[in-house]
Nucleic acid binder design. Sequence first.
DNA 1: GCCAACGTTGGC
DNA 2: GCCAACGTTGGC
Length: 142
Amino acid sequence: MAYWLLKSEPTTFSIEDLAKLPQKTSPWDGVRNYQARNYLKSMTVGDLAFFYYSSCKTPGIAGIVEIVKKAYPEKNQTEDPPRWFSPDVKLVQKFPSVLPLSQIKEVGSLTTMILLRKGNRLSVTPVQQKEWETIIKLCKHY
DNA sequence: GCCAACGTTGGC
DNA sequence: GCCAACGTTGGC
């Protein structure tokens, strides 16, 4: 059982978009970075991930999704063997409001997060259990 | 294999 | 819009 953080630009794919889909489930596709892809491939069914909004007015965590299908090759790929993979994710919870990045930054015990590392651009990152629990608690005050 | 140029990400 | 950071490309 592992924890992750998945970035998305809300104008491209928002948590509301996910909520509207059948079974509230969608492939997490379009990732074009090898390190991020390797993380996607290492996810297992039952893992949980934060749905993070980037490149928007209030960057932050919008909710929680669950991995419901292990990564498989993306459709419409011409490469053989396939290069890009995506797991299916299902909406677990949409937070009442986005937990802002600015708030996350203010919590001392969260400075270990890869998300907060200088120059980090990875769109898929692992999250430690302690970090996960801290953020869950933080949300309840939000 | 090196590295300059260029493209992309993403917070501010 | 700016800019730092990083990834990719492609000539040599």
